[in-house]
Amino acid sequence: MALPDTPLPGVSYVMPVLNEEAEIRAAVESLVAQDYQGPFEVLLALGPSVDRTDEVVAEMSAADPRIRSIRNPVGSTPAGLNVAIRASVHPVTVRVDAHSVLPPEYTRLAVAALQRSGADNVGGIMLAEGRTPFERAVARAYGSRVGLGGTPHHVGGAEGPAETAYLGVFVRSRLLEVGLFDEDVKRGQDWELNRRLRATGGTVWFTPELVVTYRPRPSLRKLVRQFVATGLWRGELARRFPKANTLRYLVPPAMVVGAGVGLVVGLVGVVGAVVGSPWAWALLGFVAPGAYLLFVVAAAVLAARGESLRTRLWFLVVLPSIHFGWGSGFVFGFLSLTKNITAHTGR
């Protein structure tokens, strides 16, 4: 469905927010500072935060009436997005994340791409930028093929149709037409929505012109929790939509299973060697985890080159944390255990 025949259609920025006291102000300020000349509004769907997020949002709303807050009692990302989209008034919906900072030209370029391509959704590159050695290691992993698989919205590519898009700038009427975000899908809801857009004859469009700065999680605990949750829901989606799976989704769980089985077999071999059992041959099981360890070291040398020593050392920890968090989550999600821990992975 085409946009209204106007050069500057109105834009609604929608953002689910939960416990983002440290990031929310910068994210919203990047929206207000857009160089797009059309009308706009900012709708913040506030979940039940336990920090000062609501107070910070109230301060910004009082200073600028274009910034509005809406309650999102469920607290999940898809529920917050849907609440904000339903309350929006403009024909273009720009999804924003509290960890993302949009460059000033983002909306202008995105609306032009929507109009030029006739697509239902346009997205670009998620450029992760860290401020500490740990965050910079995470950013390096995000932006390398060894980290998140080398998808265009992480490493770039040619403009054209895509499977999914980071964040997304949507034709609002098409969002309503396909039923908005699936609130039963707590992670990966963007992929699932884009699947429905494409299945109903729409187009998802990638353009490297759009670059969004993303702030990685600030601690190892939060990073692992993020990727376990993401893997869980990716596994659940793989089970629900088996025909939509691609090889890159299967590599991390295969690596987790292979390294885990190899480690167990290798330990059996150790016992066999100690007691003089024929099972000593099982020491060969260590080949699998050993090969992965060499892969991580080589990746740290190549993908993290140019970084400080502390960042490169963190990379040695971050990369397997991402792989094993995502991969183990995928296995549990694929085995349909997602419902048992949904309450702990809502975001």
Results as ranks from 00 to 15, higher is better:
residue 177 E to S: 04
residue 149 G to C: 03
residue 117 S to L: 13
residue 154 H to C: 02
residue 176 L to Y: 13
residue 119 A to K: 05
residue 183 E to L: 04
residue 191 W to A: 09
residue 157 G to Q: 04
residue 132 T to E: 13
residue 172 R to P: 06
residue 161 P to Y: 15
residue 114 L to N: 00
residue 192 E to V: 13
residue 154 H to W: 06
residue 128 A to F: 12
residue 173 S to G: 13
residue 133 P to Y: 08
residue 176 L to V: 14
residue 130 G to A: 15
residue 173 S to N: 13
residue 182 D to V: 07
residue 139 A to S: 14
residue 196 R to N: 12
residue 142 Y to P: 12
residue 109 L to S: 15
residue 203 T to A: 11
residue 163 E to P: 09
residue 166 Y to Q: 02
residue 135 E to Y: 10
residue 115 Q to G: 07
residue 195 R to K: 14
residue 162 A to W: 03
residue 158 A to R: 09
residue 171 V to M: 10
residue 174 R to F: 00
residue 177 E to I: 05
residue 174 R to V: 10
residue 174 R to P: 06
residue 178 V to F: 03
residue 180 L to R: 14
residue 155 V to Y: 07
residue 175 L to F: 10
residue 146 V to L: 12
residue 168 G to Y: 00
residue 120 D to N: 12
residue 160 G to E: 10
residue 175 L to M: 15
residue 191 W to K: 14
residue 117 S to R: 06
residue 130 G to F: 15
residue 129 E to C: 10
residue 199 A to L: 11
residue 147 G to T: 01
residue 123 G to S: 04
residue 112 A to V: 13
residue 132 T to G: 15
residue 127 L to T: 09
residue 180 L to G: 15
residue 182 D to I: 05
residue 187 R to I: 08
residue 146 V to G: 08
residue 138 V to P: 04
residue 173 S to F: 13
residue 120 D to S: 12
residue 111 V to F: 00
residue 131 R to F: 10
residue 201 G to H: 13
residue 121 N to W: 00
residue 138 V to L: 14
residue 161 P to Q: 14
residue 198 R to F: 01
residue 196 R to W: 08
residue 146 V to N: 07
residue 167 L to D: 03
residue 192 E to H: 13
residue 107 T to W: 08
residue 115 Q to D: 09
residue 135 E to Q: 14
residue 118 G to I: 03
residue 147 G to F: 01
residue 133 P to E: 05
residue 187 R to Y: 08
residue 156 G to N: 05
residue 176 L to G: 11
residue 185 V to H: 07
residue 164 T to G: 09
residue 190 D to S: 01
residue 160 G to N: 15
residue 201 G to W: 06
residue 197 L to E: 01
residue 128 A to R: 06
residue 151 T to S: 10
residue 192 E to R: 11
residue 150 G to Y: 06
residue 179 G to M: 12
residue 150 G to F: 05
residue 118 G to S: 09
residue 184 D to Y: 03
residue 132 T to P: 14
residue 119 A to M: 05
residue 116 R to A: 06
residue 126 M to D: 00
residue 119 A to E: 06
residue 115 Q to V: 10
residue 201 G to R: 07
residue 154 H to Y: 09
residue 187 R to S: 10
residue 111 V to R: 00
residue 134 F to E: 08
residue 151 T to Y: 10
residue 126 M to P: 00
residue 122 V to N: 11
residue 148 L to E: 02
residue 109 L to R: 15
residue 174 R to H: 04
residue 168 G to A: 01
residue 111 V to P: 03
residue 116 R to V: 12
residue 167 L to C: 01
residue 155 V to W: 02
residue 166 Y to C: 01
residue 180 L to P: 15
residue 178 V to W: 03
residue 159 E to P: 01
residue 147 G to Y: 00
residue 156 G to T: 08
residue 154 H to Q: 15
residue 112 A to S: 12
residue 175 L to Q: 04
residue 183 E to I: 01
residue 174 R to Y: 02
residue 152 P to K: 08
residue 122 V to P: 08
residue 184 D to V: 06
residue 170 F to M: 06
residue 172 R to K: 11
residue 166 Y to I: 00
residue 173 S to T: 11
residue 184 D to W: 14
residue 204 V to I: 02
residue 149 G to E: 05
residue 107 T to P: 12
residue 180 L to T: 14
residue 123 G to C: 02
residue 106 Y to L: 07
residue 154 H to F: 12
residue 125 I to H: 02
residue 178 V to G: 02
residue 151 T to W: 15
residue 148 L to S: 04
residue 159 E to Q: 14
residue 178 V to T: 03
residue 138 V to E: 05
